[in-house]
């Protein structure tokens, strides 16, 4: 299971990065507890800021941006954490999600995190980022995690933050597992390679003949196929034949 953090950390060691790391390790722990091998990875939007404004102005993507978009398309789950400025996610964070291909996030579970100076910013990401991610057909988990200065400063705040992180991370993992339509095998382990194999040519055999093994079907993974390879529109085997365009 690949979990990707798409986070805007504006300084080297920001509280936003700390929150993203804590959420990632909580999600990895929740996944591993269920027998999954979890890989985590980071995209820091700060390093893409120039590319994002260039793309806004010229329409083209730098290689770095292409790579980041591809990572999102390949991830099984996303954690996205942003600092809040004036009761809104910082602009470059939102811009990343506004510029990504429409299909890149479709069907992927997403966990929203945010940081701010005071608890009065707490619903900022929920009210502004959640609609953007929903528009992209990302599956945003019900619990999002907001951390204010108070949460880092006191033991009580820290305990409460830890609880929220665990709750949200468990939701993310549960949703990811159900989206992938994969039951964990009796051996207690399922890897991505096996999952992909089972959805290939022998899927019928693997699911039909071995009851109690994989319960994978193509239908069990809505969106999973369609979002793979955002550039498929240039595949000569997949494009709409002109005669069809001509019929209107």
């Amino acid at each position: 299971m690949k979990i990707l953090s798409v986070t805007t950390s504006l300084s080297e060691d920001s509280s936003t990065l700390k929150l993203a790391d804590r959420i990632l390790s909580a999600a990895a722990a929740a996944g591993e507890e269920q027998g999954w091998t979890v890989e985590t990875d980071h995209v820091n939007i700060r390093t893409l800021t120039t590319s994002l404004t260039d793309m806004t102005l010229t329409g083209f993507r730098s290689e770095e941006l292409e790579e980041a978009f591809a990572k999102v398309a390949e991830a099984d789950a996303i954690v996205t954490v942003t600092p809040v400025y004036k009761v809104a996610p910082v602009g470059v964070h939102t811009l990343f999600w506004q510029l990504i291909d429409d299909k890149a996030l479709a069907g992927t579970p997403v966990l929203i995190g945010a940081t701010g100076g005071t608890p009065r910013h707490s619903l900022a990401a929920d009210s502004m980022l959640r609609p953007v991610l929903s528009y992209l057909k990302g599956l945003v988990v019900p619990t999002s995690v907001f951390a204010a200065t108070d949460d880092w400063g006191s033991a009580e705040g820290g305990r409460s933050l830890g609880g929220r992180i665990r709750q949200a991370a468990e939701e993310l993992v549960a949703l990811t597992v159900s989206m992938r339509g994969l039951a964990v095998t009796e051996a207690g382990h399922a890897s991505d390679a096996e999952a992909d194999h089972a959805t290939g040519a022998e899927a019928g055999h693997a699911t039909g003949a071995e009851a109690g093994g994989f319960s994978v079907t193509e239908a069990g993974r809505p969106g999973a196929r369609s979002r793979r390879g955002v550039d498929d529109e240039f595949d000569p085997e997949l494009i709409t034949p002109f005669a069809q365009l001509l019929q209107g």
Partner: peptide, 26 residues
């Protein structure tokens, strides 16, 4: 737009890319 490349191919016409704003990979 892939539709336009397809249109050019359908008729046996030429295809032109302005090759100014986008990376060559695209």
């Amino acid at each position: 737009s892939p539709e336009i490349a397809e249109q050019a191919a359908y008729y046996g016409d030429g295809f032109f890319h302005n090759n100014i704003f986008w990376p060559t990979s695209h």
